[in-house]
Design a protein around this nucleic acid. Sequence first.
DNA 1: CTGAAAGCGCTTACAG
DNA 2: CTGAAAGCGCTTACAG
Lengths: 342, 342
Amino acid sequence: MAVTIRDIAKQADVSVATVSRAINSATRNQVREETRRKIFEIIKKCNYSPDQTARSLSTRRTKVLGLCMPSRASAFSSDYFTGIIIGAIESARKLGYELKIVLLSETTKGLDVSEVSKPSAIDGALLVGTRIHDELIAVFENSDIPWILVNNYPENKEKTNFVDCDNEKGAYNVVNYLLGKGHRKIAFIKGPEDSRNANDRFAGYTKALKKNGIKPDKLLIKTGNFTEKEGYLAVHDLLSDHNDITAIFCADDEMAVGALQAVKDKGLSCPEDISIIGFDDIRLSRYVDPPLTTVRQPIYEIGKIAAQMLIYVVEGKLTAPVSKILQTELVERNSCAPAAQK
Amino acid sequence: MAVTIRDIAKQADVSVATVSRAINSATRNQVREETRRKIFEIIKKCNYSPDQTARSLSTRRTKVLGLCMPSRASAFSSDYFTGIIIGAIESARKLGYELKIVLLSETTKGLDVSEVSKPSAIDGALLVGTRIHDELIAVFENSDIPWILVNNYPENKEKTNFVDCDNEKGAYNVVNYLLGKGHRKIAFIKGPEDSRNANDRFAGYTKALKKNGIKPDKLLIKTGNFTEKEGYLAVHDLLSDHNDITAIFCADDEMAVGALQAVKDKGLSCPEDISIIGFDDIRLSRYVDPPLTTVRQPIYEIGKIAAQMLIYVVEGKLTAPVSKILQTELVERNSCAPAAQK
DNA sequence: CTGAAAGCGCTTACAG
DNA sequence: CTGAAAGCGCTTACAG
């Protein structure tokens, strides 16, 4: 930008201070109507726009939020990624903020001065990724910018900002739903061990089973690490060893898609022989055959609320810790049927 | 950051200039080994990290790229969005840059000083969206930051930076492929009029037909605006009026997915009665029934190369205009069969 | 190899 | 309602 506030001031025959006051909404009314008009005329003529960097340096506010996530971006499905980003960016925008995507290196321990991936020049950070581990959080604890956990929550819920959905309850509901259809042999395909979400979903499964007098059977529990491929493998194994399973609950849709294929490859059909249910409601789930019954997470909402809350704490309109837990919704499609008699 | 370069300087008993030199790779070797070591020791101890905003103000470089796209984000499928972002962010990162996502308001004409969506504090802009129109481009023309068109190209190719894939050729190949399978009545479902990509794909269709002595038949051409729903509608109409069509080429996969459903709903089957082919190779395309034959655009590569090129021109390592056209790839799945005898 | 000083383009007490 | 001045935290000629 060749044209600076000085140029405007000179042309308007006022001081830069006055131009600055005229420009900023908080101080706008401190300048005489007429002066302000003159200033804006010149601003328009010169196509002037204040330098955000200079502004930031002087106010110590960048008006940008960092959406920080693991660099293994592949860890997220694009539906998830997009949902969070769009949600966050839209509410940020509404509140006058921009959004920077920052990839965190997994080895973020001793951050070096030259460490590029270190979030810089942001007013607050959205920490995305259910597998965000404590060291990573520590990096932010030692910073002086506010941050909020997205789709995750900390050990000590009372001290941290977060927004998440109720994974345990979502999973609990699934099992009840399956139980209601007469299923008793319900297998579970777990997500990764280090994912809070994955563990909560598993907890919901176990809880619902126990509540109904069914002892969770270790042999019916496998791990699929949230990927389609591993989901396929897990179910393939499962069905090779057990022929009395009537339903499979996968901790995410990716695995459920794999499960579906594994069931077909075993010569069984879904939902007639085996019911399958997923979690997340990714776009794909409604297109597979049969369309997948699953649990919807309000991803977009989560991104939106997280950004909003974060900005409020950045601006002191809300005092940390703040948190919100959103509810999930069971969406019935065609991959579940009443338990067959075996 | 409570600790500044002054604190470090004071503790190291040197000037801030020296600290600055020690920190920056370009000037690092201007400071005595021993001094530098002492400085870094203190930096580490104090957990100091330079303020990027101050740095930017003084160097007039923010080290951030803006990925600018229409605010109707829904215009993009999440696969596309994610591909471009991840591609761009990874190469940006490798080169020491961060990525800011900026939503451009569609009404970006007279940008007001307070206009939030105006890209600010960026060194360069990636303009994403095949529907980017000239007014939008004008906003950037008048700025002094470099920009590059992604998946789009300008009227005057000789004057602008862009990276795109060869849509016309991709479409041309599709038609040849279909022709090779004996199809003669090949319908085309167009994308939006104001999309350069869409028009190029259409041009490729027409060209291939003509080249083979077939006159494009207006009655076999419909518009679907790149959405599944409109694709469905277009094909539904098409099949109601014509029963001699043996193949449908959709200008994107979204429409192809809709087309597939329309064909089924008409009691026809794909590929036995009608072959369908899409464009883009979104994730979904391999999961529909039958899996869709389509044209792959190297989205991730496009994002990667675009960011790379942009940074090079920002840094003066490349002089604008720069451009690159990537090739597409026909990926055969099961939605096309030899033309049935009618 | 190092330091003093000017400057990047704003904002904001302070004084009037 | 307005201006002069200090300050935000860096970098970089300039001089030695």
